[in-house]
Structure formats: structure tokens, C-alpha cells
């Protein structure tokens, strides 16, 4: 399984999602970020780092890898196009903010030139004033705005999954463990991160469902 996590907008949640997947499922990681954080907790033989203009080598189908990509798609961004072309699924994180919505929709249009196997993750979901729901973050205005923007701008089916704002994403890098691994070792974390963990389970189901999508 090859997965690309990509959005032209920074700070959308690409690296936390990619890292959680890599740690949970022992995937290799490919990155085009010059100053990435993977050196300290991803073994050398599972880390592939290239420059923005360098193409990733064709990764054999037997290898599971998640590409964490930064930068905008252009004729020079060979790292992005080479990763997207060989991926079974492209995850585009978008959060409910004007620049992120614009950039996210633009990213989907660009990626769709190579593949339509795209999953949007609505990230950084927070309850706004007056919101009283529990559990189902699809009821949040943040999620609904992202889902509405995607459905009204994209003319093919792109599922949108919720992923709430959580301190768990900081903990991934502090503890160098996936959210599930942190929860397994700490009962308090197991309670605190239960929503975000359930949302990741849903993302994993979508990933597993997309295995044969290519």
C-alpha cells in the first residue's frame, strides 16, 4: 500500500497523519521536506528523503509506504508528482479556514490529474460557540464547511472524514509513538484520546478500502 499525504497548504496536519500511520502500521516514510522530523524515530532503512525537485524512485508494490509531501505542484516538483503517481490513495488534509479551503480544493484539482483515489480529512475540528454535540464530529460546523466546500467544488466522489483538533498530535512527536501506542501505555491517554483514535480507525478503514482502488 502506498499512501500520499499532501496539501499545498502548510500546517494542515500532513506530518502528524503520516507519522501516526507510519508508527501504527510500520510503514516506510518518504518525505520531500528539507527539515523533516523523522530521523529520530524512523529507522534509516524505512526513510526515503528527497529534495522537492527530485523524483522518488518507484517503490516496489510489496512495500508499504506513506509519502509526507510539502510544497506546491509544479513542473519542477518531481517529488510530489512521482509520489502521487505511484500511490494507491492520496489523503488531502483540509481545515476550516479560508486559505486552507482554497488551497485544499486546488490541491484536489491538481492531484486529480494523476489519480481520483483521493480522501479528504477535515482536520483541526473544534467546537464553535453554541455547538453541543457529543461524539460525532460530522455534526461540527468545521467539518460541514469543509465537506460542503469539497462537494460543491469537485465533480467526482471524494469522501471527507473528520479528525478533531487534539493534543494527541503533539504527543506523537514527544513520545515518538502512535496515538494507539500511547493509549496502550497510558489509561488516562486512552480516555482522553478516544475520539481522535476512533477517527483514525475510520481513516484506516478508508485506507484498507482503497487498497485495490488503483
Amino acid at each position: 500500500m502506498k499512501i500520499t499525504i499532501y496539501s499545498a497548504k502548510g500546517s494542515a496536519g500532513k506530518t502528524p497523519i503520516a507519522t501516526n500511520i507510519a508508527l501504527d502500521r510500520e510503514y516506510a516514510i518518504g518525505t520531500n521536506e528539507q527539515f523533516h522530523v523523522f530521523d529520530s524515530f524512523i529507522p534509516d532503512n524505512r526513510l526515503l528523503a528527497v529534495g522537492l525537485t527530485e523524483a522518488f524512485p518507484e517503490v516496489p508494490d510489496g512495500i508499504d509506504i506513506v509519502f509526507d509531501l510539502a510544497g506546491a505542484i509544479s513542473e519542477h516538483s518531481n517529488s510530489i508528482t512521482s509520489a502521487v503517481k505511484q500511490s494507491d490513495l492520496v489523503i488531502v488534509p483540509i481545515f476550516n479556514e479560508v486559505k486552507s479551503l482554497n488551497s485544499g480544493i486546488g490541491t484536489i484539482h491538481e492531484v486529480s490529474k494523476f489519480t481520483q483515489s483521493i480522501l479528504v480529512v477535515a482536520t483541526k475540528l473544534q467546537k464553535q460557540s453554541g455547538e453541543r454535540f457529543t461524539g460525532d464530529w460530522r455534526k461540527s460546523r468545521d467539518y460541514q464547511n469543509v465537506a460542503e466546500a469539497v462537494s460543491s467544488s469537485i465533480d467526482f466522489d471524494v469522501p471527507v472524514l473528520p479528525l478533531k483538533f487534539s493534543k494527541a498530535f503533539d504527543a506523537i512527536f514527544e513520545k515518538e509513538q502512535s496515538i494507539q501506542q500511547i493509549m496502550d501505555n497510558d489509561p488516562l491517554a486512552a480516555y482522553t484520546y478516544r475520539d481522535v483514535s476512533a477517527q483514525f480507525d475510520e481513516i484506516y478503514k478508508a485506507i484498507d478500502g482503497g487498497k485495490n482502488a488503483k
Binding site: E26, P43, N45
Partner: peptide, 18 residues
């Protein structure tokens, strides 16, 4: 980082290509 996990998803063979 030192290798600490088994050779699952080993990219060593691709390293020379980059």
C-alpha cells in the same frame, strides 16, 4: 537513526537511487 525494527518495508535497496 539506528535500525531497531525488522526489515519490513525496508527501503535500503532504493537508497542508491536517490
Amino acid at each position: 537513526m539506528e535500525e531497531k525494527m525488522p526489515s519490513k518495508n525496508d527501503l535500503s535497496a532504493l537508497k542508491g537511487a536517490t
